[in-house]
């Protein structure tokens, strides 16, 4: 009897830990996307799409906080937001550097970073989904099923953008 309770509570803790970890990682992804947008403002498509995709992660953060609440977790429902002095400075810097080709290398580095972050989040969602299925936790399962495909699209976008830009950045000087 006691052992079962212990297992359950342990399991509960682990689910809580997974939700908490995802909440942290999704916030990290929001920051990575917004920072990419600011840094690459001169590349208009990167700027706008990165901000749209940050919106997905912001929504994921809100939903994770909500799910966390019913599991006794106190997670901040307010994700990172665009703006602030640093963002403005980055955007200005990007526009000033718009006439130079070399910052392209920074774009590749930023996309690589973003891809890694998104890949991590994607795996975290896999873990949560598997856990939810095993626990027959339908609320958690729906959350993972709704959010995970968007994480995969974020990752695919980073890869596609990198593929599209790499040759022009690397070959022409």
């Amino acid at each position: 009897m006691k052992i079962t309770q212990t297992l359950r509570s342990l399991r509960g803790n682990k689910v809580g830990a997974a939700v908490e970890e995802l909440h942290r990682a999704e916030n990290g992804l929001v920051e990575a996307l917004l920072s990419l947008a600011d840094q690459q403002k001169a590349d208009h498509e990167v700027f706008h799409v990165a901000r749209d995709l940050a919106g997905w992660s912001q929504e994921h953060v809100r939903r994770l906080a909500e799910v966390g609440r019913s599991r006794g977790l106190d997670l901040d429902a307010e994700p990172a937001e665009p703006g602030g002095l640093l963002a403005t400075a980055k955007q200005k810097g990007s526009e000033l550097m718009g006439r130079f080709h070399e910052p392209g290398l920074l774009l590749l580095a930023d996309l690589r970073h973003l891809h890694r972050e998104a890949a991590g989040v994607s795996l975290d969602w896999e873990v949560l989904l598997q856990t939810a299925k095993a626990l027959k936790d339908s609320e958690l399962q729906k959350l993972a099923e709704d959010c995970h495909p968007e994480t995969v699209r974020q990752m695919k976008w980073a890869e596609a953008k990198l593929k599209e830009s790499a040759a022009q950045i690397m070959v022409t000087g």
Partner: peptide, 20 residues
């Protein structure tokens, strides 16, 4: 054919950054 063709707005961007 290593990537999708460059669209007009991106061509202007590459002209802007000096690679075209």
């Amino acid at each position: 054919h290593w990537t999708s063709p460059t669209h007009a707005m991106q061509i202007m961007r590459y002209v802007e950054d000096g690679s075209i």
